[in-house]
């Protein structure tokens, strides 16, 4: 049987060690193969792509540009291929990012990434918080309604269509914690740091999405 190929993009935005290990553990003994993407790639040779990210929107976009990943990634996403973006890897699906400087994103899910509005909040939003189901989704969101995941971020998805919000979280305001458009998923939290719940989410994505 032909193995499905999972691409893990190393956008040089934080350590990919935990997510790399999580994926390896999940696909052990299953018909999948993991390939780390560090530069230009052929978008048709991957069945799934995961992009983890930490730090700033502008930094990740400029890293991906330098690594010549933007073009094939856009082609991949335009085909509605299966994708999971984590934290900043989710944020860059938007049209624009407002962190540090205004940066154009991948423009896959319409909306902008802006700072939490409430000035009295402790920022970054750091720690475990609950996700609440907004739209039905048998693959990822349904199983995790009211479960806690680990967040660390100061910016959130705004001006997004309700139909693209799978789950939201409360921190001073409601904000999208899981977004979806077609086969493209994004999570604001870090499943790779969210203990069993997080590993289950990655597993669901890999095996079911």
């Amino acid at each position: 049987m032909k193995k499905k190929v999972i691409g893990l993009i190393d956008g040089q935005s934080g350590n990919i060690g935990s997510i790399n290990k999580a994926i390896k553990d999940i696909i052990k003994g299953r018909p999948y193969r993991l390939k780390i993407i560090k530069g230009h790639f052929n978008h048709s040779s991957f069945d799934k792509i995961i992009l983890p990210g930490q730090g700033a929107y502008a930094t990740l976009m400029s890293n991906l540009k330098k690594l010549k990943i933007i073009k094939p990634l856009k082609e991949y996403l335009e085909n509605n291929s299966s994708y999971l973006g984590i934290c900043v890897g989710m944020q860059i699906l938007s049209d624009w990012g407002y962190e540090d400087k205004i940066t154009r994103g991948l423009g896959v899910i319409s909306g902008d990434i802006k700072k939490f509005r409430n000035k009295k909040l402790i920022i970054p939003h750091m720690g475990w918080n609950t996700i609440n189901l907004n739209n039905d989704d048998t693959i990822i969101a349904n199983s995790f309604d009211k479960k806690d995941f680990y967040f660390v971020h100061s910016y959130i998805f705004q001006n997004i269509k309700k139909s693209n919000v799978l789950a939201f979280t409360l921190y001073g305001q409601k904000f999208p914690s899981i977004v979806k458009k077609g086969n493209i998923y994004g999570v604001q939290f870090h499943p790779e740091k969210s203990h069993r719940q997080g590993l289950n989410l990655i597993k669901n994505y890999i095996l079911k999405a």
Binding site: G17, S18, K21, A22, Y150, V152, H190, E192, K193, S194, H195, G198, L199
Partner: peptide
């Protein structure tokens, strides 16, 4: 340790 835990 980083290899055996999946919390921050």
């Amino acid at each position: 340790i980083a290899k055996v835990i999946n919390i921050p």
